[in-house]
Design a protein around this nucleic acid. Sequence first.
DNA 1: TCATACTAGTACGATATCGAACAAACAAGT
DNA 2: ACTTGTTTGTTCGATATCGTACTAGTATGA
Lengths: 159, 159
Amino acid sequence: MVKRQDAASENASDIRQIFDAFTEIGIIHQLSRTLFEQRLDDSLLLPHFTVLNHLARLGDGVTPLSLAVAFQVPKTTLTHTLSGLEKRALIETRPNPHDGRGKLVFITKSGREFRDNAITSLGPDISRLASEFDFTKLEAVLPVLKELRATLDRYRDKN
Amino acid sequence: MVKRQDAASENASDIRQIFDAFTEIGIIHQLSRTLFEQRLDDSLLLPHFTVLNHLARLGDGVTPLSLAVAFQVPKTTLTHTLSGLEKRALIETRPNPHDGRGKLVFITKSGREFRDNAITSLGPDISRLASEFDFTKLEAVLPVLKELRATLDRYRDKN
DNA sequence: TCATACTAGTACGATATCGAACAAACAAGT
DNA sequence: ACTTGTTTGTTCGATATCGTACTAGTATGA
């Protein structure tokens, strides 16, 4: 494993490309968010769905803080998101038996249904998009994105 | 040009991977945004910089609406972003001589300086990140991202 | 057991985001 | 000119986001 020694010697075009990539990522995020939110009823937004999806896929009974870390948002933001979900009975929270300060978050039956419906309702969009964009290309991209994410993640912790 | 006929036959694991990719993109956006905003003074945020960068790189004298389209945000959001920039004299607006309804946006001298400083101040971060993540990998990823963006973009227009 | 430091979650205030509705100017056809 | 429909940008109100400060509970060590 050879460390690059010229790490500090990025030139202007390298930096521009890096900015471009992040700009592109921002716009994709924005576009997908808008598209997705058009398919959600009840004025729920992408963060709400993201939480439900996480709970459904990776298991519930987790702390709010662990969710905030998973999505890299401040915990105050997550408090707000969870309160919206709880108000609609898509999740419920119980005291953490192992930690008197904390809560555990559980997805409810209607939460699962809501999540499943959201995914189902997105099916036609994905099909239509798949006729123009070959999603298998994401297979090659995803590992790079994950590595970039992990690097940024580690870097953040060191600050 | 052969249209895929099985576009509607995505299975669950395909869909999961698509969701994963968008989730990853969202988190990268979030992380880069936070990191970047820590380097900006004056409580300016990423959207402010993004506008300045766009004007500096691709030229100013453009309409607010064209900026909103470029970043895929609602024009009301851009009104707000521009007002923040104008209040700090980083941009200025003049009436559009060709269209009595519109404005044109220009970047000021201090706007350029601000943008240059922001990029410079990010240099050390990029260098340190480059020692852990090989940014040349973005060269392979960027075209795919651009294609995905273009597809989403076209799709949105059809709605 | 106590003091200190730390952690989970919330309250609050400031700003950001965005949809809906609007006014003003344009465009096209009549 | 005049009507109709469209486009630019703003205002307004509702919600989202997030930094700061706080409370309550936990962990550690003397």
